[in-house]
Simulated assay, not measured.
Amino acid sequence: MKLYVALSIALMCLTGGVNAQQQKETLLIGVFHFNNPGADLAKSEDFDVMSKKSQQELAQITDHIRKFRPDKIFVEWDYNDQMALDTLYDLYQKDAYFDYVQTKFPKSKFYLQNEIFQLAFRAGKKAGLQKIHAIDYQMDWPYDSLQSAIKKAGQTTLQQEIDAQIKQVGEEDNALRKKLSLTQLLLEKNTAANRNANLGLYITLLNKGGALHDFTGADVVNAWYKRNLYMYSLVQKLTEAKDERVMIVVGAGHAAVFKHFIDMDQRSKVVELSEVLKN
């Protein structure tokens, strides 16, 4: 009992000390993948980020980000491949990037359209940053095992609910892509409702997949949270004491989890894209 009280007092003192520190502002931008690789559960139609209108919007968005003055920018690129990202960003700063990738990867939409190059690189150059930081951490996501466990457990209704929600998300996303601009789509991806719906699929449906003593569903949710914890750990480790503002550009699903992490992180606070675009 004495140990518990002492530990509680110590934690209270620690929390007070942390709260007294100035919180770092984190511009969290959840995106749809501009090059649309089709890797998400919900399938979406292409959106032309290379159109004149979208390019003008990206220029305007990054002008606002320059005023936010991020000290560091983090992106969804394999953290073990930082050297390759450095090479590409160096080419971008020299205005040689797009000529290089169109010659090197003529059939790849990724290097031309992905948000890392269209949004993060553009923002980084305008902010005068010499480096863009990679934070992605790839690991197996056993979704196929979950479907097998659901089938084995006879959870037909659960599987139907999962399929229906994934289909609905895809249909709603496609409808928005037809009527909204790029800026409007990004703002929509970063609403509280969108983030909560994204997280809700994991807890409401996937987590209960499997028979009574089969925790495959929880393992799937755990793997998703674990990947995001690793990614956010890299953000924390790469953020220095002198940094006052950072920016994170990741898929909207990652951003939904990151928002939860940042809200609990006493040294950081979220700044929304909508706030930055108002300034």
Rank of each mutant, 00 (worst) to 15 (best):
K167T: 05
A120Q: 06
T191R: 04
G217E: 00
V49Q: 03
Y97N: 05
V270E: 05
D48L: 04
S145M: 05
G154Q: 12
K94N: 14
L176A: 07
K179E: 06
V276F: 03
C13Y: 05
H254L: 04
H33F: 13
F98Q: 13
F121R: 08
E275L: 03
M50I: 02
T216A: 04
A6V: 12
R177T: 01
V270I: 10
Y92F: 12
N207G: 03
N228E: 06
A123H: 05
F34E: 01
K131W: 07
K237S: 13
Y232M: 05
M12V: 15
I166T: 07
R66C: 04
D214W: 04
M12K: 13
L180N: 10
G209H: 05
N36Q: 10
I203R: 15
Y232A: 02
A96Q: 14
V246E: 00
K152R: 15
D136L: 11
W77N: 07
Q82C: 10
M231K: 06
K226N: 13
M264R: 05
K189D: 02
D71N: 14
N114S: 12
Y97G: 01
Q56N: 15
L112S: 08
C13M: 13
Q155H: 03
A120N: 06
S108R: 08
K226C: 14
H254A: 01
K269A: 02
L182Q: 01
D46F: 08
L158I: 04
F68H: 11
G251Q: 03
K104F: 10
L7H: 07
W224A: 09
V276N: 01
I132Y: 14
N228S: 06
D243M: 00
K53W: 05
H254N: 04
L182Y: 02
Q138N: 13
S268A: 07
V235D: 02
K104W: 03
Y89F: 15
Q130T: 14
I9Y: 09
W224D: 13
R267D: 14
S148Q: 15
L238M: 08
E244P: 08
G209Y: 06
Q159S: 14
